[in-house]
Design a protein around this nucleic acid. Structure first.
Lengths: 199, 199
DNA sequence: ACCTGAACACCGTTCAAGT
DNA sequence: ACCTGAACACCGTTCAAGT
């Protein structure tokens, strides 16, 4: 029995292994299929083993949220605040769309006060550049985050149910123009309400 | 054994009974506690009995969504489009806040393409009054819905976790001004972008 | 330090059978 | 027509015990 490759040992699971496998399952099968039991099976380990590396499933999801958001690019210098905000909003949408159910993962993590708030702060900085006070900028940035997460969640849930054939597939599918319209509306609002004497 | 009141019969459960009890559990214990088994127990019935009245749990939740949204009032006649939109957005927030986890119930129902779209259509009508074309108005109305649902979901999830002592309670709790700011921003955007020649 | 084994306390849904 | 009983195929989490 020496020539046959008997069950690979492959122990010493790392925290990073767990997160990477979870991200793979998320992207390939979606958030509802990302269960502790399925994750453990994919890693060839008992479910309880995961709790040595992460305190809870929600903590794993928070880690996924951070990884999804890590891909949002640094801003170009010298951009107009409106251009910058527009570009950041589109980049955030792209990052969320890059993983299946990305928006829901990030939204639920944000709601629990876990994970990074980098994208919101990036929005806020661009809005400060328009002349708004820091606390107002954070408020506006939060509103924009709600729009982005709501829009992309909706997009991704629709994709999910269309692929299952549940919803009537309306055919028309490119929601990028709708998204841009929403962002432009938001920016036009900021331009209209911003403190006078700024340019 | 005739004087003692033996286990009340109370059969013939109606669809309305199921929805009403579900709404009670939702409001008192929250969406995570609204399970088919708990609902059945509260109605003194087996879980499988619920499936005679509703095809699925999601269908029950869609019914709750409609009931939550039923309380949004008819608009005053003769209002300015901006005033009307503002009033409707605040009324929607109030309706969502009237039941625990109301925003999440409505958001998930909307995402599945179930339940009423009355609030969105009401938004769209006010936006048409500003001079926008019907399809543009629906786009903008959808964006506003995303903001409202996102904002109120966030508010309610925060309440939930604060009451459990999970999140650090920051003390400052009235998010109505933040909400109004977001709505005003949105309306200012519409005012800036609306077709010329309208007043 | 890292993981197994076994249990605890649950889920939504289906379906034959009863009344 | 309306509901029970029993099952199917799952959940997240804990914790003593092993190595």
């Amino acid at each position: 029995v020496s020539g046959v490759d008997e069950a690979a040992p492959r122990r010493r699971l790392s925290r990073d292994d767990v997160a990477a496998e979870a991200l793979r399952i998320l992207d390939e099968d979606g958030l509802p299929d990302l269960t502790m039991r399925r994750l453990a099976a994919a890693l060839d380990v008992q479910p309880s083993a995961l709790y040595w590396h992460f305190a809870s499933k929600q903590d794993i999801i928070a880690e996924l949220s951070d990884r999804i958001l890590a891909r949002t690019p640094a801003p170009h210098a010298g951009e107009d605040w409106a251009e910058s905000l527009h570009a950041r909003a589109l980049a955030l949408r792209d990052a969320l769309l890059a993983y299946r159910d990305g928006a829901e993962v990030v939204a639920s993590t944000l709601a629990l006060g876990l994970g990074t708030v980098r994208p919101r702060d990036a929005f806020a900085r661009a809005i400060e550049d328009a002349g708004f006070a820091p606390d107002t900028a954070v408020r506006a940035a939060t509103a924009l985050m709600h729009f982005v997460l709501g829009h992309v969640s909706h997009e991704q849930e629709r994709m999910q149910y269309e692929s299952l054939g549940v919803r009537a597939d309306a055919g028309d599918d490119d929601s990028a123009p709708d998204f841009r319209f929403g962002v432009d509306l938001f920016i036009a609002g900021l331009a209209a309400l911003r403190p006078a004497g700024r340019d």
